[in-house]
């Protein structure tokens, strides 16, 4: 029996049964922009950055199973325009001050903004008031940068078995919370060794006193733009700093 194959921007991409479009593309070294996807976790399709057109329909590449003969449009002006708009909305909803953020150069949101050539925030800034949680001795939570990807929620629940994080509220009021009576990270069983401490794709969950130790030029996305990293390391499928 022939290996099932889909056409990704006209390129034949073989895949094995059960793989999603994202998994097939990643294995082939083709980058599909994404934020909430991480190869170590079950996909949830919430950020919509990985939206592709499969047989003419908009779908999330991270949740849609690949099908033999499927024609997938990924790197097109139409899709990249939509992705850029999603990024712009994420940037204005939080407080993303890259110039003084220790995650600069290692941040997936920033890397995607560069990749998709986001030149301005376009929308009016929300400037939300989100105090940081510095109560934990080893970890700082800077909620200003949360993009609601739920990777920490999934990691703490599914890997660490601690359920430290959750999303609360609805719609525009949705926000990341800490599962403690006080709402403070220090009052949970959270540890720097937890998986959840290392999956944040942006600068929310930070090991304290480590900021800026890595010189400019040696940070993850200083070396190569994100799409090229996928091309040079097919199969890596990374999302956070660990990948």
């Amino acid at each position: 029996m022939n290996t099932p194959t889909l056409l990704l921007d006209g390129l034949p991409v073989p895949f094995s049964a059960g793989q999603t479009i994202m998994e097939a593309a990643t294995a082939a070294g083709v980058f599909i922009p994404h934020l909430c996807h991480h190869p170590d976790f079950k996909p949830q399709g919430s950020c919509k950055l990985c939206t592709v057109k499969a047989n003419g329909r908009y779908v999330s590449a991270c949740t849609m199973p690949a099908k033999d003969g499927m024609e997938v449009e990924n790197d097109s002006p139409d899709l990249n325009d939509k992705r850029r708009t999603l990024l712009q909305m994420l940037f204005v909803e939080g407080n993303h001050f890259c110039p003084s953020c220790e995650k600069s150069g290692d941040c997936l949101l920033q890397a995607l903004a560069y990749e998709l050539e986001m030149l301005t925030a376009h929308f009016a800034q929300f400037y939300p008031d989100r105090p940081v949680d510095a109560s934990h001795p080893d970890v700082l939570l800077d909620f200003n940068r949360c993009i609601l990807c739920e990777l920490c929620v999934r990691a703490s629940r599914d890997v660490d078995r601690k359920n430290v994080f959750a999303l609360s509220g609805r719609g525009i009021g949705k926000h990341l919370i800490v599962n403690a009576e006080s709402g403070r990270l220090a009052d949970t069983g959270f540890s720097l060794a937890d998986k959840a401490a290392h999956v944040c794709p942006v600068g929310v969950i930070l090991a304290k006193r480590q900021g800026f130790l890595q010189p400019i030029g040696q940070r993850r996305y200083d070396r190569q733009p994100i799409a090229m990293q996928f091309a040079s390391l097919p199969g890596s499928g990374g999302n956070g700093p660990e990948a």
């Binding site: 110039p99 003084s100 953020c101 220790e102 105090p131 940081v132 510095a134 700082l140 930070l206 304290k208 006193r209 480590q210 900021g211 800026f212």
Partner: peptide, 14 residues
């Protein structure tokens, strides 16, 4: 105020 101290040298130079 309210920012982590290791961020300060990078932020205030702005």
């Amino acid at each position: 105020q309210g920012r982590p101290y290791w961020e300060v040298p990078v932020m205030v130079q702005r």
